[in-house]
Structure formats: C-alpha cells, structure tokens
C-alpha cells in the first residue's frame, strides 16, 4: 500500500505559479525604476555642470540666466517622473524607495542649486514637491523629508565649488563667496538638527563641514588681503587668484585624506 498523499501536487504548483508572476512583476518594475533613476541622475548631473558653466560667465545676469536654463533642462527630469507616477502609485513608492532615492536626491540637488542662483535662498519642501506634481497640482508621489534633506545636503558641495571658482573668474565673485559662506553655514546649522532622524545625513554633514571650511578659508583670504592694502580690485583679483591656486593644491590633499578615511560619497567632492 503506498503511503497516502494528502496534498494535491497540482494545486500546490498552481500557488507557486502565481508567486512567480508576482515576483517577476516586482523584479521587472524594480529594473525599470533603477534604469529611470540612472537616467535622472545623469540628466541632473548635466544640469549641475550647466549651471556652473553659465553662472561663471563674467557679467551681471549670469546667475539668473543659468537658473533659467537649468529650470528648463530640469523639465526633462520632471517629465520622466510624470511617466513614472503609475509605477510609484499608492504604496509602491515606499516599496521601491531604495531604487528611486538616488536619482531623486540628485534631482533635488540640481533643482536647489538653480533655485539658489535665482533667489539666493534654500528651496522649500513645498516647492520641491510642487515641481514633482502635475500641472494641476497632483503630486506624482509624496516627497519624503529624508530625500529632501539629503538632496539639499549635496547642494553645499556644489555651492563650495561655485563660490571658489567664482572668486577668480567672476567680478562679483568675492562678494558672492562671502554670501555663500554665510548661507552654507546656516544650512549646516539647520541640517544638524535633523541628523538623528535621517539616516545618512550625518555622513553628509561631515562633507558639508569640509565644504564650509574651504569656503571659509577663501573668505578669510579675501578679508586679509583687502584689509592690508588699499588696492584696486584688479590687483586684488590677481592676488586672490594666486592664493586660490595654492589653496586648491592643499584642498586636494584634504580630499584625498578624506577618501582614505571615510571612503565613498564624494559625488560632490572632486576638483574645484
């Protein structure tokens, strides 16, 4: 007598068949979102370069012009998000958050940089969410505090580059560097409050501190040189330019030392 089998093999296999569909569906969507996120990261990085390039042009309207071009270019990213909204609908956003976040943070970095060039202020949570909403105001997905803060935290690195390269190539560069210095300092203080709530923010704060220090060093140079002599601006420019070239040798050393220590996360580091 064969041992009685109680379970029905075909029923059991049918269950697994439905799991297969479900798991495949999950994996496919995940892949699609990873690809989209990579495209978004790419586009956003290009926008950041664009903003730097135009902002450095030596005239009065360069900041506003950069911001305008940047916002226009960021529409491409917004369109990608519009197309993704059904992939992120309902509880899906949280399921795929890990796939979505990297691109989203890069986008926020680019957007906030353009916003800073335009207004000289930090972009608000509401404004970022509005940029990720359909024309009639329906969000493509709900923005999270953590993505918002982590995206902004990357902004400080860009501002450091912007301030320092502006010193030698833009005639209003010195005044701007002083402003940026105060702004980044305020950002750092504001973000500090959130470090216990947002994982990863602490690490980014460390990088913000480094960026801040670089800007402070540059601001120091400006004050010291201009107080010693009553020099015309052109000569000051020359002196500052020399100081910058010495300074950037040193800061590269800094950056290397940092990489040995903490490693990754240097999307915002790199040569100034």
């Amino acid at each position: 007598m064969p041992t009685p089998i109680q379970h029905d093999r075909s029923v059991l296999l049918a269950h697994f068949e439905s799991f297969r569909t479900e798991i495949d569906d999950y994996n496919d969507r995940r892949e699609r979102l990873i690809k989209a996120s990579r495209d978004i990261t790419n586009l956003s990085k290009k926008v950041i370069f664009l903003l730097h390039r135009i902002a450095l042009e030596n005239d009065d309207t360069s900041y506003a012009r950069a911001a305008k071009r940047g916002f226009a270019k960021l529409c491409e990213v917004q369109n990608i998000y519009a197309g993704l909204s059904h992939e992120l609908a309902g509880d899906r956003y949280w399921r795929y958050q890990r796939q979505v976040s990297p691109g989203l943070q890069e986008y926020i970095e680019a957007l906030s940089f353009a916003h800073y060039l335009q207004h000289g202020t930090l972009i608000s949570f509401q404004t970022v969410q509005r940029s990720l909403s359909s024309p009639d105001g329906v969000p493509y997905f709900s923005l999270t505090v953590s993505d918002y803060l982590l995206g902004l935290s990357d902004l400080t690195g860009e501002l450091m580059r912007f301030a320092i390269s502006g010193l030698s190539s833009h005639k209003g560069g010195r005044a701007k560097a002083t402003q940026v210095c105060a702004f980044v300092r305020a950002c750092k203080a504001d973000f500090e409050h959130y470090t216990p709530f947002v994982p990863d923010l602490r690490k980014k704060q460390a990088i913000t501190s480094q960026s801040l220090e670089k800007i402070e060093d540059a601001a120091y140079t400006i004050v010291v040189r201009s107080s010693e002599y009553d020099l015309p601006p052109e000569i000051l420019d020359d002196i500052v330019a020399q100081s910058i070239s010495r300074f950037s040798d040193r800061s590269q050393k800094h950056a290397r030392g940092f990489e040995d220590g903490l490693g990754e996360d240097d999307a915002q580091e790199g040569p100034c």
Partner: peptide
Amino acid sequence: EEPVKISIFVKDLFAGFSMLNLK
C-alpha cells in the same frame, strides 16, 4: 512512515520553488 510522507511533500514544494525566478 513519517519520513516517507515528508519526502513526498518536500519534493513537491521544491518543485514549486524551482518555478520561481528569484534574484
């Protein structure tokens, strides 16, 4: 008898799991 019963059941389960495309 138990091991024989278990064996049949587990083999079918294994066949089920083999159908999945796991990452």
